[in-house]
Write a protein that binds this DNA or RNA. Structure first.
Length: 680
RNA sequence: GCUGCUGUAGCUCAGUGGUAGAGCACUUCAUUGGUAAUGAAGAGGUCAUGGGUUCAAGUCCCAUCAGUAGCUCCA
């Protein structure tokens, strides 16, 4: 008599001893098919493991659970590390080898660095290890013994981790497979053969414990799946994702250009991209006016004194372009034999004045606020500007439109009273909501950044912080969408609400932001006269619904996969003539559409219609208007829609009305996921 | 900034130390067609830049610049 207890508490009884597989079969055919291994007392056992006894606590692990995939991948990481230790000569220090969303990695410090040339050898060795099918054996040791084991293995990272990271653990577990033994919490798959298909991906640098001041390790990325088909499918998906990369589409569609001679991270907006940017700017401007914002313009540079007052210089000097010194001063300094280092020191000390390319817009806006006496009746004052700022980002961080050195924020600064703060924050959130809704963008996350209760870097009255954090929380709630609250994520000057989206490769980017600031009003000594006839300090809100035009458009290119909605599309429609015989009519149609305010071009080449349609498809045109002799005779156009395909002939006026309505309503229509237009 | 990889025609990419290649795009000519590629010809190159090794370098080595994946950073 054998019985097992399943995770739901139910007991299943058997006449005699049974295998895990038989238990699975007794529950259902589907389960038996999906079963990978069993787990008894949290210890994995293979499917042919024989169960005896009563009320044996059994869990059947299947491949449709992410947990199983993670366990398998982690086991694969052990196999990979073992293979690396066999292949590479010299000492090898193991660090961590966790799983990621799409695979796993292992960090090593090697005497001989890894290169991609090692991949085939490592993969072959891994295949050999898997073929041997040695189990992962669990050993539990008291901490002194554990430290000794790691020390004997000359694994200093592990020793450090036990002593520091795992200081509270009485006992520690190891997993051993053949000659390879590794400190590891587990669990592991019962049989390495469960690892169906794996592939090494790339090598990258990583710092021990993520600390730049510590040893740099080599991180070997790989992925694994239960079957080769799943691995192939995954790789195919990754390739597909790369096709919607904004850097690829930006080039293909001619939206922007980044030129080596201009400089890293400095974007040149070509006509089509500039059009999208302008259109988005007009869109947000319309809503800013409705919400009582005032537009301002400020210069791209400002005196160092301004940024010393704001605290941005020299504190953030490393991430700014160096200051500009005027010609006369420069000549004088040169005469004195002043070196660059001295110049820098003297600018920091305030002995030499210079100009800074603005790293943010707030100081300029503050000076506009402060240019006249303000009454509480003037507040809230909302100053908006599409302000271009320049930051010296690390070279390794720059890429595409998402991280650049010169970018334009859809910036605004709100000067408010404490009583107005909560409502104004809600107003800011409303704008962000309008933006995301217009884009049909639902896949974003919201983060409320609060101060670290134990931190001491924060400026301002803790009571005000409490109020501001509460106001941020309440504003975030108006989104009707879950959000996270993260302690220690606030800026030193105030709490904030951030909006984060993912790019085509799964990387996270902050777009919109709303930040409360108690610091700058203080530093600039801002005030307003209250109803009590006394001076009071206003609070500032920094906010940018897009974040930056560059990053936002980069993310939107990927969001729409280049197929922008009609109101944003630089080229809304193209007239295609069936043959040159229809060119006159085609040009007439084109003119009428342009007169109706639509952005239309014509393709009058002596190509076949099929070729013109193909080119139009590759350019991701929302509409193609095919005109031939029949249309010329009837005053029609044959409309080909990006989403629905051939719509047939319709009177020109009807087509224009359709387009105008779609533009007016800012309709977002997505082509099918597979990229077909429904007619092919 | 750090680790790995990459840099060849406008674009996407081949290229074994021995004469610089393809497809697409472009130009010209022919073709006049109804929903994803008409045909032919032509033009297009300081092989990222600078050094080095070699009888000989796109190819091997070093440096620099740029791109890229990741790490670190992001007021």
């Amino acid at each position: 008599m054998t019985s097992v207890q399943l995770p739901d508490g139910s007991i299943k009884e058997f006449e005699s001893s049974v295998t895990v597989k038989e238990v699975a079969q007794s529950i259902g055919r589907g389960l038996a098919k999906a079963a990978l291994w069993g787990e008894i007392d949290l210890q994995p056992v293979p499917l042919d493991h024989v169960i005896e006894g009563t009320k044996v606590p059994l869990k059947i692990v299947t491949n449709n659970k992410n947990a199983a995939l993670e366990i398998m991948r982690h086991s694969c990481a052990h196999v990979m590390a073992r293979a690396v230790m066999r292949i590479k000569k010299g000492s090898i220090q193991l660090a961590f080898g966790p799983t990621t969303d799409n695979g796993f990695y292992y960090d090593f410090m090697l005497e001989q660095p890894l290169t991609e040339d090692d991949f085939p050898k490592i993969e072959a060795e891994m295949a050999k290890i898997i073929e041997l099918d040695e189990p992962f054996e669990r050993l539990v040791e008291p901490r002194e013994k554990a430290v000794q084991i790691c020390a004997d293995l000359k694994q200093e990272f592990k020793v450090e981790h036990i002593n520091e990271g795992l200081a509270d653990d009485e006992t520690l577990s190891f997993y051993q497979q053949g000659e390879f033994i590794d400190l590891c919490r587990g669990p592991h798959v019962p049989s390495p053969k469960t690892i169906g298909a794996f592939k090494l991906l790339t090598i990258a640098g990583a710092y021990w414990k993520g600390d730049q001041s510590r040893q740099q390790l080599q991180r070997l990325y790989a992925t694994a799946f239960f079957t080769q088909e799943e691995l192939d499918k995954h790789q195919e998906n990754q390739e597909e994702a790369k096709k919607r990369d904004h850097r690829v589409l930006g080039k293909k569609l001619g939206l922007f250009h980044i030129d080596e001679m201009v400089g890293q991270g400095l974007v040149l907006w070509t006509p089509k991209g500039a059009f999208i940017r302008q259109q988005l700017q007009d869109f947000i401007l319309f809503h800013l006016r409705k919400q009582g914002y005032d537009q301002v313009f400020t210069p791209h540079i400002g005196k160092l004194d301004l940024y010393k007052t704001s605290g941005h210089f020299p504190y953030y000097e490393d991430s700014q372009y160096p200051a500009i010194v005027d010609r006369d001063t420069m000549a004088k300094l040169a005469e004195e034999g002043c070196t660059c280092g001295e110049l820098s020191n003297r600018m920091s000390a305030g002995e030499v004045e210079g100009y800074l390319l603005k790293p943010m817009n707030c100081p300029h806006h503050i000076k506009i606020y402060d240019s006249q006496q303000r009454s509480y009746r003037d507040l809230p004052l909302r100053l908006a500007e599409f302000g271009t700022v320049y930051r010296w980002e690390q070279s390794g961080e720059i890429g595409g439109l998402t991280r650049v050195r010169g970018f334009t924020q859809d910036d605004a600064h709100l000067f408010v009273t404490q009583e107005q703060l909560a409502d104004e924050l809600i107003g800011c959130i409303k704008l962000v909501k309008i933006v995301f809704a217009a884009m049909g963008m639902e896949d974003y996350s919201v983060r409320v950044g609060k101060r670290d209760p134990n931190g001491d870097k924060y400026v301002g009255d803790p009571a005000n912080w409490d109020l501001a954090e509460q106001a941020c929380r309440e504003a975030a709630e108006t989104l009707g969408k879950p959000f996270t609250e993260e302690e220690g994520e606030a800026a030193f000057y105030g709490p904030k609400i951030d909006f984060v989206v993912k790019d085509c490769l799964g990387r996270k980017w902050q777009l919109g932001t709303v930040q409360v600031d108690y610091n700058l009003p203080e530093r600039f000594g801002l005030s307003y006269i209250g109803a009590d006839n006394a001076a009071h300090r206003p609070i500032m809100i920094h906010r940018a619904p897009f974040g930056s035009m560059e990053r936002f458009i980069g993310v939107m290119i990927e969001h729409f996969a280049g197929s922008f909605p009609l109101w944003l599309a630089p080229e809304q429609a193209r007239v295609l003539t069936v043959s040159e015989k229809s060119e006159d009519y085609g040009r007439k149609v084109e003119q009428q559409l342009i007169s109706a305010g639509l952005r239309v071009t014509g393709d009058y080449r002596s190509e076949k219609l099929g070729a013109k349609i193909r080119d139009g498809r590759l350019d991701l045109l929302p509409y193609m208007l095919i005109v031939g002799p029949r249309d010329a005779e009837n005053g029609t156009v044959s409309v080909r829609d990006r989403v629905e395909g051939d719509l047939g002939a319709m009177p020109l006026a009807q087509a224009i009305a359709r387009f105008q309505q779609e533009v007016e309503q800012k309709t977002v229509r997505r082509p099918d996921e597979d990229g077909s237009d429904g007619t092919d």
